[in-house]
Design a protein around this nucleic acid. Structure first.
Length: 280
DNA sequence: ACTAGCACCTGATCGC
DNA sequence: TGCGATCAGGTGCTAG
């Protein structure tokens, strides 16, 4: 559920609250919250101190005063909350880390999220090595990113969701970026000029940047920042979840289609169905 | 090497 | 009221 703006909102909140704090105790309350192997690895971080909170795409990690890093992914429904010790346990509380006066809690209804302990090479944890830079990354290179999109042989929406091409974009911001660039989600990447790909990358960057300014998108309390507060970007969504509504640009009726096992929302009038590629 | 499809979960909502 | 189908912000494995 959380995409780059939501994960970055969480990262900033964590950085504010836990840098310099020590893990006094670690309790794993659900077997799926870590891989079976890393339950022991996770509890072995007792005594570690947090040095820095980092992110690439939707992956978050805590650098510690030891070589290993604590990596986290929120999946579809994960939350990381800073709570007073006295706060009642949340229904889907999966991991509790005692920081002294407060606790860092990992809460996750659908259990697609996880925490794990990993080695770090070149500044990135093992599982993040295959994740491409996101548009806000110091290592982000526009030309290389365009080139990776151009090499794909698939629909553009699938490529936008492929975290090894460019990271950070999920289903909401993919639909919003495609709408802003007037591109139909099923357009074949083979049929897109690099200027159009660049335009799409810029739209994705712009929409995620605007969402970040208001703390991300929350439809319900399944996504909140570390203080439990919701983001406000839902008010600004042009197509996501707007099936049947009028397009803000042309008044056309927003449609929802299903492909790649997910919903795609778009305006059929300003994002027309792509013409099949001609064979000569 | 690459892509498509589905599995992994819990819970809310909608139509019958 | 109940029950099945469908939907939900993501990733990872595997068959082809």
């Amino acid at each position: 559920m959380p995409e780059l703006p939501e994960v970055e909102t969480v990262r900033r909140g964590l950085a504010e609250h836990i840098i310099g704090k020590k893990f006094k105790d670690i309790e794993v309350r659900h077997h799926r919250a870590t891989s079976p192997k890393s339950i022991a690895a996770l509890t072995s971080l007792k005594g570690a101190r947090v040095v820095e909170v980092s992110r690439r795409g939707k992956f978050l990690w805590l650098n510690l005063d030891r070589p290993e890093v604590l990596v986290g992914h929120l999946g579809m429904s994960g939350q990381l909350l800073i709570q007073p010790k006295s706060a009642a346990d949340e229904r889907h509380l999966r991991v509790r880390i005692d920081l002294g006066k407060h606790e860092l809690r990992f809460i996750d209804q659908r259990t697609f999220g996880w925490l794990s302990v990993e080695e770090s090479k070149g500044g990135f944890p093992t599982c993040v090595q295959r994740i491409a830079p996101d548009p806000f990354d110091a290592e982000f290179n526009l030309a290389e990113t365009i080139s990776r999109f151009a090499k794909k042989k698939t629909e553009i929406k699938r490529a936008l969701l492929d975290q090894s091409v460019m990271s950070g974009v999920g289903n909401i911001y993919a639909d919003e970026a495609l709408w802003r660039s007037k591109i139909h989600p099923e357009t074949r990447t083979e049929n897109m000029r690099s200027t159009k790909i660049q335009n799409l990358i810029e739209s994705a960057t712009e929409v995620m940047s605007q969402a970040l300014k208001v703390g991300g998108t929350s439809f319900d309390d399944l996504y909140v920042n570390v203080n439990g507060e919701s983001g406000y970007f839902e008010r600004f969504l042009a197509v996501y979840g707007q099936e049947g509504e009028g397009c803000l640009r042309c008044g056309g009726q927003i449609r929802r289609i299903t492909f790649a096992n997910r919903s795609s929302h778009f305006c059929p009038k300003c994002q027309p169905t792509p013409r099949a590629k001609r064979n000569h």
